[in-house]
């Protein structure tokens, strides 16, 4: 079986490696190199591609995902919207099981102050039903660019990892509330 595995190329390298190690006598590492020589070394990098096979993900050991408990705890104590970073974007926005409201702002943008206040109020009023975050576009331009944010303040509403609503500019609180009510 080991021989068969070595012959056909798409065999997983672990069995290939095991097969060779079992088959090769311990006395002849040098001879093996001569014998299988070029072809073996050539095949190795090719076979390492197993890491990219669809089923390979389960074989790669990843650190277990960080529990979201820490985030939940800090939420309970902060009254308004929290700051979000590019690193936590996937975890808090895409993977959230409740709708998420993100305010994109910049440090010296006047209208952002007014929207800050509205978002903080909404965060308190809808605590537990939606999550509210703020993202500084100067700190994380890649996120702003990927969601094609041009004007700030812009408020995006996400549900099940998808953007469902976008509100640009400073608008009365009722506009934000209406969009949220529709999403929950």
């Amino acid at each position: 079986m080991a021989a068969a595995a070595t012959c056909c190329c798409p065999a997983p390298p672990r069995s290939l490696y095991g097969g060779v190690a079992l088959a090769a006598p311990s006395a002849a590492p040098g001879r093996r190199r001569v014998g299988y020589g070029a072809s073996a070394t050539r095949r190795w990098p090719c076979c390492r591609r197993w890491a990219h096979w669809p089923g390979a993900a389960s074989r790669i050991r990843r650190p277990p995902p960080r529990p979201a408990a820490a985030a939940t705890v800090s939420c309970a104590y902060s009254p308004g919207a929290e700051t979000i970073t590019a690193c936590s974007w996937n975890e808090y926005v895409i993977c959230s099981d409740i709708p998420v409201l993100i305010e994109f702002w910049a440090s010296w943008c006047g209208p952002c102050r007014m929207v800050h206040r509205i978002v903080d109020e909404i965060a308190q009023e809808y605590a537990g039903r939606i999550k509210c975050y703020k993202l500084d576009t100067d700190d994380y331009p890649q996120i702003a660019t990927s969601y094609s944010i041009e004007r700030i303040p812009t408020v995006l509403l996400f549900k099940d990892g998808e953007k469902i609503h976008s509100i640009t500019g400073t608008l009365p609180k009722a506009v934000y509330v209406r969009a949220i009510e529709k999403s929950i």
Partner: peptide, 29 residues
């Protein structure tokens, strides 16, 4: 007036950093 103040500060900052008072209420690549 704090909105006005913040925007003027943003314009002044951009003028210092970039040489022109670029609008501080937009995101630029």
């Amino acid at each position: 007036k704090s909105v006005t103040a913040v925007v003027i500060k943003g314009l002044a900052d951009h003028k210092d950093q970039l040489g022109a008072p670029l609008c501080p209420c937009r995101h630029y690549d």
